[in-house]
Design a protein around this nucleic acid. Structure first.
Lengths: 192, 192
DNA sequence: TCCATAAATGAATAATTATTCATTTATTTG
DNA sequence: CAAATAAATGAATAATTATTCATTTATGGA
């Protein structure tokens, strides 16, 4: 018996991500995905029973990958600001290296492919980030305010900065990350 | 001769925006749009020669509407911070009141419907915002730095805040706008 | 009031695209 | 090395959806 080529799943995922970045969820067809992944259309259906399943599985994988990355290198023993910066830079770098995934997930969020329960799960993944923000407030290092707003403020800048840098084909330098972090930090830090 | 009901265009646009918010660009069909707009499928084609034309026209209209709103009430005679706040709040309120349009435009950006030249035009619309940011730096009220980054930082928070508030079905209070503006301002103001 | 004209309709058609399937190919194992 | 099995293929089919069109309806002007 011929075994499955598990590497094909990755090929299919990559092809889908690239196509969605280029033409959006609305613009992709199963045969295009197949040909971009260098396989036959029928083969696609050996690995994914339907288009909906393919999109959902890819969405789930993207979500997991990004969540695993956030807290790499973060420990609660670190001073708060250092820890925050590590997480913040993790997210920044992840956005850069996985730009297609961010575009894909954004598009999925308003789409007929993703089920409500899949969306619900996504919300849970930001729980650890809430904890982080709350720690900062408890240590009186951050302004005392609504955690939801603070959380969004902390990460919104990097999201949009990466997005618009890609659109305008700008390089993102190491120093620009520092600068943006400082902008954000000056906003959130407790006034002394 | 029976005249055209120009009000129908608005019905069609509204129906499209609502549907795209609910199911995304990938999920809408011409017959769905027609029935949501309470007209026959064929009638749609009296007003728009194709789906692509409909999407493009709506995109163009959304872009214009939003650009017209930004600077309402802003005058260069105002102190910089007051002027910035007016523009910033205009954008914030626009995002709230026209949430569907923001979702629609986001989705269009990665789609086969919008042409490159349409995208190019969009970039030009932020020129006045650049001017505003540069004014702030010249008056030494803002940190001296890359205008592109500063611009994105200023407006990213409100964008994401409105988006996530809608997703989580949170009300946005008057005071939360003030708070978010202050977060942002503390980030960008020149350190004294 | 009636005619001319274009809008409005929605079923029919054309195009597109998801999915299936008969056939071929590759791999494992006995 | 041959049989057994499942992957791989891509043309054929089924579904879906954009678009058209013959017919009906509504409106302004003669």
């Amino acid at each position: 018996m011929k075994p499955r080529d598990e590497h094909k799943i990755e090929q299919i995922f990559q092809a889908t991500l690239v196509l969605v970045k280029e033409k959006g969820l609305a613009g992709i067809t199963m045969s295009e995905i197949a040909s971009a992944a260098k396989i036959a259309t029928g083969t696609l259906y050996i690995y994914f029973e339907s288009k909906e399943k393919l999109i959902n599985d890819l969405f789930t994988r993207c979500r997991k990958t990004s969540a695993e990355t956030y807290f790499k290198g973060y420990h609660t023993e670190q001073p708060f600001k250092d820890g925050l910066k590590i997480v913040w830079l993790n997210l920044f770098d992840f956005r850069i290296e996985h730009f297609e995934e961010a575009v894909f997930m954004d598009q999925c969020y308003h789409s007929p492919y993703i089920t409500e329960s899949t969306k619900e799960l996504t919300k849970k993944l930001i729980q650890p980030l809430y904890k982080l923000v709350e720690r900062g407030m408890e240590e009186k290092l951050l302004k005392k305010m609504d955690a939801f707003m603070l959380l969004i403020f902390i990460f919104s800048g990097l999201n949009e900065f990466v997005k618009h840098s890609f659109y305008s084909e700008r390089k993102i330098s190491k120093s620009s990350k520092e600068e943006l972090f400082n902008l954000m930090w000056d906003g959130i830090k407790a006034s002394s």
